[in-house]
Design a protein around this nucleic acid. Structure first.
Lengths: 228, 228
DNA sequence: GTAAATTCTGACAATATGTCAGTCAAACTC
DNA sequence: GAGTTTGACTGACATATTGTCAGAATTTAC
């Protein structure tokens, strides 16, 4: 028995067939949180209101999470693997780097569009807790490292101009994260098309040069729906 | 009698010579907050601890601000004018657009480096209060609008390729804001040089094309200290 | 010097959090 | 299937922070 989270594509599944109420309760809480955060900001999430949406009482929350931040952290882990997976073409595959980059960005936009309000909840929550903030920055740094690695490889091939990859990679990943939060974090969400346009322009022009940008933009809206 | 905020360049000045304890107390509180946020994250700011750093008692806080968010909002207003002022060359002046843009970005980096931890406090606080969040987004939108206006003007002159200016301007401003918070928001702060490098590369390559980037980068570290 | 106005504070009520001892139910033993 | 063990659950409590208010204290006006 696994529970699908509405409109998010994220599953929180307890042990598939095993009985034990514990794992079910944990998934129950996580699902209630995700559902709540889809229509309310993180600041309105109290443990009281959250547990009202489950079958157990408020103190039971503390059997599974030490506080709301730890709960968010658990949800964040699920999200990270989802995003990384979509971003893999450019990071790992061989082939036209500009095409692969665009494909990866499209996939990332797609995932983040689908969980925008939750993404916003994470960044809001990160500001209120040191541990979660470290977790969030840790995730961003893992993304940075992956991008840096790819940039260095392409610099060695002469595809990318030789500049300090660290600061540019950091900045580019920041663009994405902050755009997703701002554009998709509150409903009604912005349409993903223009966001992908803007992000693609920044990544491609600052890494590979603007001569590639125009060709990508024209086919953009046809491609965006197909990925992932 | 005006009080200078340590290492920030921001002044909170009560009525210059007038007596009246009210305005002095208000400035006293704002300065205490700024000082506190320089070395502690926003989440650790309680009204109790804040007012311990002033000469009056905790309930007095409510004579001046309805809560901590309103206090941050007041400090934000001071900051906005500071930043806008430095960014004016590219936005309003005539001349080589790439040079002016670089000059504006350098000034903005300079200001934001000087109040990095406070900037982080604002974004953290924005996540915990709807009104402050609206104020923060409002400020970002005013920046967006100014950039859009300039982009449209340069597109009309053929200096910038014709693309949807809204999404690109939004993305570019997001780069800056999020980089400032991440790089300068926690001590030890990153050095401003590489941050300016990365930001400049993104702005210049995505707006005017990468052929301008290299020339800017070489002179960068000599220029950065002189502006403003 | 006295009255009016403003600023300040001690004490209170409200809300959310985290803890814990004790209860309850499932599952295991024989 | 009765008794025991294990783990999940809950009511009640202690704590922390917030926001309010009536009255005290201080400044300003006359």
């Amino acid at each position: 028995m696994s529970v699908k989270l509405a409109a998010s594509g994220i599953f929180v599944k307890p042990e598939p067939t095993k009985i034990g109420r514990s794992e079910n309760t944990r998934a129950d809480i996580m699902n209630a949180a995700f559902r709540f955060l889809w229509s309310h900001p993180f600041r309105e999430l109290t443990i009281d209101k959250l547990m009202d949406q489950t079958s157990v009482s408020r103190p039971s929350f503390y059997n599974y999470f030490s506080d709301t931040h730890e709960l968010i952290e658990s949800l964040l882990e699920i999200l990270e693997s989802d995003i990384l997976q979509g971003a893999s073409p450019w990071l790992t595959d061989d082939g036209d780097p500009v095409a692969l980059l665009h494909q990866s960005l499209a996939a990332e936009v797609h995932v983040c569009y689908r969980c925008g309000p939750f993404l916003k909840a994470i960044t809001d929550a990160a500001g209120t807790d040191a541990r979660l903030e470290a977790g969030w920055y840790g995730m961003l740094e893992r993304f940075d490292d992956a991008v840096i690695e790819r940039v260095i490889a392409d610099q060695a091939l002469g595809l990318i101009e030789s500049f300090d990859p660290w600061s540019v990679a950091t900045a580019l990943n920041q663009v994405n994260a902050s755009m997703y939060v701002r554009a998709f974090g509150q409903r009604p969400r912005s349409r993903p098309g223009p966001v992908l346009d803007a992000i693609s322009r920044l990544w491609i022009s600052s890494l590979y040069g603007e001569r590639w940008v125009a060709s990508r933009m024209s086919t953009l809206h046809r491609e965006q729906g197909t990925s992932r």
